[in-house]
Computed example of a mutant assay.
Amino acid sequence: MLLASFFGVVMGLVLGLTGAGGGILAVPALVLGLGWSMTAAAPVALFAVGSAAAVGAIDGLRHGLVRYRAALLIAALGAVFSPVGIYFAHQLPEKVLMILFSLLMVMVAGRMLRRERKDEGPSDHGHANWGQKNCMLDQQTGRFSWTAKCTATLAALGAVTGVVSGLLGVGGGFLIVPAFKQLTDVQMRGIIATSLMVISLISAIGVIGALHAGVRIDGLGVAFIASSIVGMIIGRKLCARVPARSLQVGFASVCLVVAGYMLLNAAL
């Protein structure tokens, strides 16, 4: 119980510090730290990540940063496609799931380590005038201009996020954040807040689907989930005091080490 609580706090802390994507450590914490199988760890990880993300999303809503219409659209498509991922998770061998998850962690680490070019962009409340993207903010209202192209883009993002979250038990922040940066003109603080809302919604849908399929969460799982919420709150308070680049490098390094260990376990 103590070990589960410790891993939960660490996962929530990382999620709070990184804003999104840190939840990818939840499954390795349960698989490597507590010896669970991938299929047993996935719903508990989703529940923990979703609960912790909800804390951050509520904070973002309070400050008017969440693009809630976009978040609801992405989550709705995630709800439709998440069961597809859950189905394949129960069909694939444990070793294959571990390899897929390890490769995913390597991909996330690579993106974190790559230095990004800083472009001047609009604020979170309009001034969308610095280069056409799929989803642009209206200068008058500060909201997305809901064109067919924008709607289709966000719907496709939701579908992919839903499948991946159901398959590997991750919230999908590592997909949503870079996609929003590439395809919209929302600033980073708005992207993170919106991502956390999507993660919380998609995770909740995935958990409901898993519970409906007969998965049960025991006392260790509950301790992990509760501790992750505590870690998230602490992380949100500390994130402004830690240099962003240090967070990225540290998080990426942890991902690479964990991915290597999971690949080794899969090979053995």
Score class of each variant (00 low, 15 high):
257 V>D: 01
150 C>T: 14
164 V>D: 03
236 R>C: 01
146 W>C: 10
4 A>W: 04
81 F>Q: 11
20 A>M: 10
32 L>C: 08
83 P>E: 02
159 A>C: 15
210 A>D: 03
244 A>C: 05
235 G>P: 04
65 L>C: 05
148 A>N: 06
131 G>R: 10
75 A>E: 00
263 L>G: 04
144 F>S: 12
5 S>W: 03
108 V>Y: 02
23 G>F: 02
22 G>T: 05
61 L>A: 15
105 M>H: 07
226 A>L: 13
216 R>S: 10
14 V>Y: 04
126 G>W: 09
32 L>P: 05
228 S>D: 01
240 A>M: 10
243 P>E: 02
93 P>T: 12
37 S>T: 13
261 Y>E: 02
230 V>A: 07
117 R>P: 07
120 E>Q: 07
166 G>Q: 01
11 M>W: 00
62 R>W: 06
7 F>V: 15
143 R>F: 12
259 A>T: 09
226 A>F: 03
124 D>F: 08
16 G>Q: 00
68 Y>G: 10
84 V>P: 01
199 I>Q: 06
147 T>N: 14
98 M>L: 10
2 L>Y: 13
154 L>K: 13
76 A>I: 06
144 F>Y: 12
247 L>D: 04
139 Q>E: 12
127 H>M: 12
60 G>N: 06
188 M>K: 11
61 L>V: 13
97 L>Q: 10
113 L>C: 07
175 L>T: 06
210 A>F: 02
150 C>R: 13
81 F>G: 02
177 V>H: 11
197 M>H: 09
44 V>F: 05
235 G>R: 02
266 A>Q: 03
77 L>D: 11
167 L>I: 04
137 L>H: 03
177 V>G: 04
246 S>M: 15
57 A>T: 13
99 I>N: 08
176 I>K: 15
214 G>W: 09
203 S>Y: 01
69 R>G: 11
45 A>Y: 00
26 A>T: 05
171 G>C: 06
118 K>C: 08
108 V>C: 07
80 V>G: 02
41 A>F: 01
9 V>L: 12
152 A>T: 13
228 S>R: 04
226 A>I: 03
149 K>W: 02
113 L>K: 07
46 L>K: 05
142 G>S: 11
24 I>V: 12
251 F>C: 07
68 Y>I: 14
96 V>L: 10
170 V>Y: 01
224 F>S: 07
70 A>K: 08
188 M>C: 08
117 R>F: 14
136 M>E: 13
219 G>S: 13
149 K>D: 05
94 E>D: 07
